[in-house]
Nucleic acid binder design. Structure first.
Lengths: 158, 158
DNA sequence: CTTGTCAGTTCCCTTAGGGAACTTATAGGG
DNA sequence: CCCTATAAGTTCCCTAAGGGAACTGACAAG
């Protein structure tokens, strides 16, 4: 739905949501991440309406999250691949997986497992500080105003 | 919109989206995280319609992400506070911030800064492997089927 | 030349979101 | 005592976004 535009807010969460905030977008990204790169595949896998899928793919492509690539010129066929920007969004998916596995997986356990290339083990992600390397979660930080706070476009009052 | 229910999919991303997938939910969570815990505050800060805010708060409360707490009985007044489950969702916000700062902050720089308690420095989150501690991002993992894959509720064919 | 497939597009219908007014319970001021 | 203000919703109507299904265009295969 989202009739209100988030992109103009002075908030990086809102700006991120502006790109992938619509409900289907993260699932589309997931499909492409795991190798379902074509329209028909994604549509059937998700059960999303073709109209909405078209809109989302267009939006994600325009925002440099995906690249639309021709894999056959005759007949014309296309697939969607992740850009670097899009691949970094998949990091977000990994964190969603972590939360979903922990709080919403139920009896059966996690539906998907992730093996870390470096250590070869089934594992999951944790958040750490880019500076000191120790755990850094929402409960471990102070929030301060930064340089990019509200542009305040109002002219000086007369 | 989200007429399609995500919660039933055998996918932790879908299940996470089922809880906070609607566009406004992460922003509501953000507001509560930074201390705007009351209905009027959130409504005015976000410019969200009161109807939708009511629905979202109700949903988040029913899903144990928030707790509705009475801070005055006469007159009856309530505030919303994060549960442990909700606080862990804020980790997700931190990752969104990281992406938004990096790919959508523009000239002005990040609107908000985060100081890590442990080291006292302005920093940002990185994803690391819960097992070996080294960086673990979407590009660094293999995806494998887990124990909780599609429950497949179809009865045995005759 | 009929059928099939991919990737969309178009149409109509339903439903969710936006906006604004109204409600309830209570405190405070004159 | 009455009027106003405030927090937290609720109700109403209208519009726009999503769902579903049918249709299109370009080509390949048989």
């Amino acid at each position: 739905m989202q009739r209100t535009r988030f992109g103009d807010m002075a908030c990086s969460i809102a700006r991120t949501l502006d790109v992938i905030g619509e409900p289907w977008s993260p699932l589309i990204l997931r499909d492409i991440y795991v190798g379902m790169t074509r329209f028909e595949q994604i549509q059937q896998d998700l059960g999303i309406s073709r109209k909405v899928l078209t809109e989302r793919l267009k939006w994600l492509t325009e925002n440099d999250v995906l690249e639309r690539r021709e894999y056959s010129s005759r007949p014309p066929r296309h697939e969607y691949v992740l850009t670097a920007k899009g691949m970094e969004l998949c990091d977000l998916l990994l964190v969603m997986v972590g939360w979903g596995d922990r709080w919403a997986a139920g009896e059966a356990g996690p539906p998907v497992l992730y093996r870390h290339h470096s250590c070869g083990e089934i594992s999951h992600v944790e958040l750490s500080c880019a500076g000191c390397g120790r755990p850094m979660r929402a409960a471990d930080v102070d929030v301060l105003p930064g340089p990019g706070v509200a542009p305040d476009p109002s002219p000086a009052p007369a």
